[in-house]
Nucleic acid binder design. Structure first.
Length: 786
DNA sequence: AACATTATGTCGACT
DNA sequence: ACATAATGTT
């Protein structure tokens, strides 16, 4: 797997005949560098400045990705490096994939051989696997996700007799993550911070956790960066190899790098010095994850002789949108300062609208989307960008009622679902029996009568004999230390694992996965399950097997999953996108809806509490990111009431609304809302008095809120929230009514609500009493006969 | 060991 | 309000 690193002489190498670079260079000589055509002067400078450190300050929509990809193409075309001598780092897999594709397009062929194009984590993994033994690991180490990590920490805490009530594992996990983000090992943790956990044992526990990881031959996300840093520092000869290898380095989203990533880059950049970083300080929104805007602010000092290029021509958004965004971000201090210049007409003004509560917000936005759709706009070109993921559900519910196709990006993640994690655990044990956490997860799933007691025995034996858990289990069975039913069940499981392991090289991995899920009784477990989700879970398992297809083998797939975490659902029908503002960075849509601009939610209270002014500035940058996603229309909303942890709370409009320039904003009344929205009369502080209802309790909205079982009354199981949602709503059937012929009393299945019985039929609208979700009105197109 | 009940934390964003 | 974890019961 690892190709030799020192496979080339140090001097400049001519492109391999027939390689990408050679062919691209041939094309260059023949047709001229047509990939440079159409770049503006600044972009061109950023592409052609190849030697020495370079910082490209690229505002939103100024062609940042284009510069990066063209730069790579340019390097290859000039023959300055071969594809595997370029290090190109992104933060997300999506960005990496896009870059690969676009480089390929520029070169007119697939960008094969660019092995070092990927995320910090995937490249870190690659390096760590090559030199695992230098940090006491085997190169087959497993990568723990957050869930595994927390379970492991729980084990550590209980082994150390620490009350995990008083000192939650999550908290320690969070602290450890923070330390790793700052490249601090257990010994480097500042005394003051270690003090904060378990009466000063924080750093000690961190050390124990690391030791446990090593025992398990496992690493967590942070180690994927820290490991390589340690290797580089302790083994100059290894670092030297990489210095020789990476002739050019490119980093995307430099403003989001944390200390560890910065150190990692700086170590590597001591080699060729050809480090090009692209970023935008105004779009730094990952401070909570350890990102340091200072990295970008300090670039010129860190890399002497650095050239700085500013990209300020925005090709994405129309004038009003851009003005609004610029005006807003100008309230931040401590920025490098850029002025985005629109390249097109002023277009539509940004709109701000208020609603009574979050439900009405969802309804109004749904209506507006339908109106746009009927005017010929595609749903693919519209997005709803929320601050927090819990806001998504209200939109989902509304869209289901409307029959409006939508896709949620980043919601409950595919790979975090229980059934997927179980299935993955089976695969992991088969691929590497030493994966103790995976084994523990599935010994008793489905139920085999192997509970805590049995697991304890296995664990003790494994520790005593220093063997893997499956091996310990085998010994227990053979030695007869396990009795009766438990022994039979365990023996059976062990034999199954032996059988599956034997199939690894003989059977295609997708088939093997099916066999494992079948023979383990896992699919059976869900097939027998009568709950609403069971069907969906089986679907997900099929989806999982399908998603394994593109991979060469099981190992490759497992590696991918441990890093990727985002399931790539294939392209589907025309649909509205619902996602978080964080997830939206780097994307653009014609129309962007921005709901929930209320104090406490946006800016988020916790951001303000924890980070004060810096937190507020980061929230403001998030608002800036949101606005600049819009090409033609940006529509902001706020609600006067929102349910927080199940309790109704009134809210005041976000301070960011007051920071928008009046000239570029239209305050609109919410169409078809109770009380006609906020009325037109906005004072100088336009939104401060935006709660005309707060003192009167007789408004329909308030009554509705109460009927819905708000802060006071708890509704009986029959009085579902599905009812009031449609009092005035006049459920609108989006498509023509063609009844699928469901009769009253029929049993139906719904993707989101599960199984239920039809109570009433009204054209293509059904009232269904769902077993789990209660009574809902849905369109017949969304249910199928159960 | 498996199920039923109760208590608790969660809903801040992500690799 | 909901889901999960912890606790109690058979």
């Amino acid at each position: 797997m690892p190709e030799p690193l020192a496979d080339r002489p140090g001097e400049f190498a001519a492109p391999r005949p027939g390689g990408i670079a050679a062919r691209a260079a041939a094309g260059l000589r023949a047709a001229g560098p047509d990939y440079l055509a159409g770049l503006n002067p600044e972009q061109r400078e950023a592409v052609e400045t190849l030697d020495g450190p370079l910082l490209v300050l690229a505002g939103a929509g100024t062609g940042k990705t284009r510069v990066l990809t063209t730069r790579i193409a340019h390097i290859l075309a000039l023959g300055r490096a071969r594809p595997f001598e370029i290090l190109a780092v992104t933060f997300t897999n999506k960005a990496a994939r896009e870059m690969r594709e676009r480089v390929g397009k520029l070169l007119g062929q697939a960008a094969e051989g660019m092995q070092w194009l990927g995320t910090f984590h995937s490249i870190g993994t690659r390096i760590l696997r090559r030199h695992a033994e230098l940090v006491g690991l085997q190169s087959s180490f497993t990568i723990l996700d957050t869930d595994d990590q927390i379970r492991l920490i729980k084990q550590v805490l209980s082994a150390e007799n620490i009350d995990d009530k008083r000192w939650p594992a999550r908290q320690l996990a969070f602290a450890i993550d923070g330390w790793k983000n700052r490249a601090l090992g257990p010994k480097d943790v500042p005394a003051g911070e270690a003090q904060a956990f378990a009466a000063g044992r924080g750093a000690e526990l961190y050390g124990i956790y690391q030791a446990r990881l090593k025992q398990l031959n496992a690493v967590d996300f942070g180690d994927l960066l820290l490991g390589p840093i340690r290797i580089f520092r302790d083994h100059p000869d290894v670092l030297e190899q990489y210095h020789r290898r990476f002739r050019f380095m490119l980093v995307d989203e430099y403003q989001d790098t944390n200390v560890a990533q910065y150190l990692w880059l700086r170590l590597l950049a001591q080699g060729s010095k050809n480090l090009a970083c692209v970023g935008d300080d105004d779009q730094s929104i990952y401070g909570w994850r350890g990102a340091e805007v200072e990295n970008i602010l300090r670039f010129e000092r860190d890399f002497p002789g650095a050239k700085v290029v500013r990209l300020e021509r925005n090709y994405r958004s129309t004038g009003h949108i851009l003005n609004a965004a610029s005006h807003l971000i100008a309230k931040n201090e401590g920025r490098l300062g850029k002025t985005l210049r629109p390249q097109t007409e002023l277009g539509e003004k940004v709109t701000v609208a208020g609603s009574w509560d979050s439900g009405e917000e969802a309804r109004a936005i749904g209506d507006e989307i339908e109106a746009l759709q009927s005017k010929g706009h595609k749903l693919d070109d519209m997005a709803i960008l929320v601050r927090a993921s819990f806001q998504m559900r209200e939109f989902e519910e509304r869209f289901i009622t409307l029959g409006l196709p939508y896709r949620v990006i980043g919601g409950p993640r595919f790979y975090e679902r229980a059934e997927i994690r179980d299935a993955m655990a089976y695969l992991r044990v088969v691929a590497s029996p030493a994966d103790a956490l995976a084994f523990e997860r599935i010994v008793n799933v489905p139920k085999r009568g192997l509970g805590d007691a049995a697991l304890k025995l296995i664990n003790e034996r494994a520790r005593a004999d220093e063997v893997t858990l499956p091996e310990a289990a085998r010994r227990l069975c053979d030695a007869g230390e396990m009795k009766g039913k438990a022994r039979a069940a365990l023996k059976d499981l062990i034999l199954s694992f032996d059988r599956w392991s034997g199939l690894i090289d003989k059977t295609p991995h997708t088939e093997l996965a099916e066999i494992i899920l079948e023979e383990s009784g896992y699919t059976d477990m869900w097939a027998k399950d009568r709950t609403a989700e069971a069907q969906g879970r089986l679907e997900n398992l099929k989806e999982l097997v399908r998603s394994m297809e593109p991979f060469e083998n099981l190992r490759g797939f497992l590696e991918h999953v441990s890093l990727v975490m985002d399931a790539d659902r294939g392209p589907s029908e025309d649909a509205v996108t619902i996602m978080t503002l964080h997830g939206a960075k780097g994307l653009e849509f014609d129309t962007v809806f921005l709901p929930g601009w209320e104090e406490g939610l946006f800016p988020h209270q916790r951001s303000l509490d924890e980070s004060g002014r810096a937190g507020l500035e980061e929230e403001r940058r998030l608002a800036y990111v949101g606005l600049t996603r819009a090409r033609r229309r940006a529509k902001i909303w706020f609600a006067s009431n929102r349910r927080v942890h199940g309790m109704w709370q009134s809210s005041i409009p976000s301070r960011f609304l007051d920071e928008l320039p009046e000239a570029d904003v239209d305050v609109v009344e919410a169409p078809a809302t109770f009380g006609g929205g906020m009325g037109g009369g906005y004072g100088p502080s336009r939104f401060d008095n935006a709660q005309p209802f707060s003192s009167t309790y007789a408004t329909p909205g308030w009554r509705r809120a109460q009927e819905r079982g708000g802060a006071t009354a708890s509704p009986g199981p029959g009085a579902r929230r599905g009812g009031p949602m449609t009092i005035e709503g006049e459920l609108v059937a989006s498509s023509s009514a063609k009844s699928a012929g469901f009769k009253q009393g029929a049993r139906v299945f719904h993707q989101k609500f599960g199984n239920g019985t039809v109570v009433e039929v009204d054209g293509n609208k059904l009232t269904v009493s769902f077993d789990k979700a209660g009574e809902k009105r849905v369109l017949d197109g969304f249910v199928k006969a159960a």
